[in-house]
Write a protein that binds this DNA or RNA. Sequence first.
RNA 1: GGGGUCGUAGGGUAGCUUGGAUAUCCUGUCAGGUUCCGGACCUGACAACCUGGGUUCAAAUCCCAGCGACUCCGCCA
Length: 560
Amino acid sequence: MFIEFRNEVEHVLEEALASYDSEGMELTESEHADISSRIAFSLASKYKRSPKSIADEIVKYIKIPAEDTLISNAVADGPYINFFVNDVYLHKALQRIKEGITAKKKEGKIIIEHTSANPDGPLHIGHLRNAIIGDGLARILKRAGYEVETQYYVNDMGRQIAVVVWGAERMEIATAKKADHAVVDVYIAANRMVEEHEAYQREIEDLMGAYESGDEAVVKRYETVVNASLSGIKATLERLNIHHDLFVFESEFVREGAVEAVVEELVQKGNIKRRDGAALLLHLDGIDKELVIRRTDGTLLYTTRDLAYHRWKSSRCDRLIDVFGKDHELVSKQLTKALELMGVRAPEFVIFAFVSLPTGSVSTRAGRYISADELISKIEARAYEEVAKRRADLEEDRKRAIARKVGIGALRYDMVKVSPEKHIVFVFEDALDIEKKGAPFIQYSYARACSILRAAEGLFTDDYDDEYNTALREESEKDLIKKLAKFEYVVQTAALELKLHLVAKYARELAEMFNAFYKYCPVLNAEQELRGARLQLVYCTKTVLGDVLDVLGIEAPDVM
RNA sequence: GGGGUCGUAGGGUAGCUUGGAUAUCCUGUCAGGUUCCGGACCUGACAACCUGGGUUCAAAUCCCAGCGACUCCGCCA
């Protein structure tokens, strides 16, 4: 409803400004009004008058319609022109929520690529951030009305995978373990062997060559390993409520000749520097480092294959988003330039900084890493302790289910509450401290709302609409409704700017306002008419809290 | 050496693209609060824009310089 209000303010203000020579309206949100305009400042310098006198004058020209409007009034406060909503706005905002908020379908399809971890072992904490950001973006764009497809790009042609495939011939992939964990064991052991014997390195190279050329027996061996890893990775992602619509394999582009086609095109269109052998180095404007698209020995590189993948992706959608780690930043720039050269639309990159541990850097080989599975289990266990302490009355299954929602919620919220470019030091104790950390607080508010509605079973009906205007007059009630009315606006803004933390912030603020309302406005003990109105407000809050948590990929428990 | 990101209370963090009212929120410390629907709650207080210039009526925001931090720089992925 806020979007409609904003549109109306724009319309009214534009007419009032008709006789001025102004560009834009300089609308801002502030605590002083529902919407403000700072236009008087810029007009002041243009007309050599005081901002205050101009603001006073503009307000006189503002004509608010007598009916069918959401604006109550516009007043000049010094140089600012402040607009306020009316009761109709508050009424309609709740009405909209009761009908169920659904965004209008938007034109265009969006593809988001995220996670894309190498299938040589389990996900670790860095992948987790990638996956959670990517999934969050997908959810928010869907909510904003777009068609979204999520893709996991499987790097099945790298050396790491070859090492695992090689190792799998010599040792068993343990079946007792979760598949991705079993695969990394093989990788670590095989890698040690390969490092010690040069002869093995040749075998690895032969294996890579055979796979690239599509040798059937080799392809089968690869598939076994890659599928084992992916099944484990998928299981981990599932615990986090994350799924991908499509898994795309790097090798497909090589065998179809799409990669060769890219090379040919770049040779024709680009500034190529040849060096010894078959090597091709591409110089890209504005980037010092040349992009190697083919090795001396004639084999191709990851980035070249990535170009083929992006060309394919780009042709299948209208907006392309990649979630990349910071270490890929240079690659992302080279990718952009090279794609431009090819006349292919480049993706929008969401670059996120790494998650490190207080003990130092993460190292897979040294065994000094935290697998995502381990982390998830620990945080769920911690949440369980808390649930068991508070809700001894519940059945075991119930407690487990709540702990799962709370634990995953805390983790997901933690990963998106700050801007992606901020580096995170992952302190176990803090992450496991589920109190005051965002998601549990919001979930608790949701559970409380549910609790009230349960207690009011039979009292809550839909026919209090007419009473609304006279019933809900408390500040905490109005603030809460205004916040509810902004949900769609926040979703649209966050979708446009790809800023998940805006949604996280909104969720927290909404929960805060509900708690304040809860504190000052008794619902069940209010006299009948007021009770009905407040029950509706509780219902609407519950709905939006559930929606906003869903956008963040967090489940809302009705008890906790 | 070159590129990038960043510097906001004791710690963390929003705001910076598009300059404008008392700089956001979490945590911390201190002081309060529940005859009531769930105390994983609420209210109040303390405390910050790296430094120096510049532009401007107005700078956390834009420009320049400095200092500091982190990070990337393989014919790996």
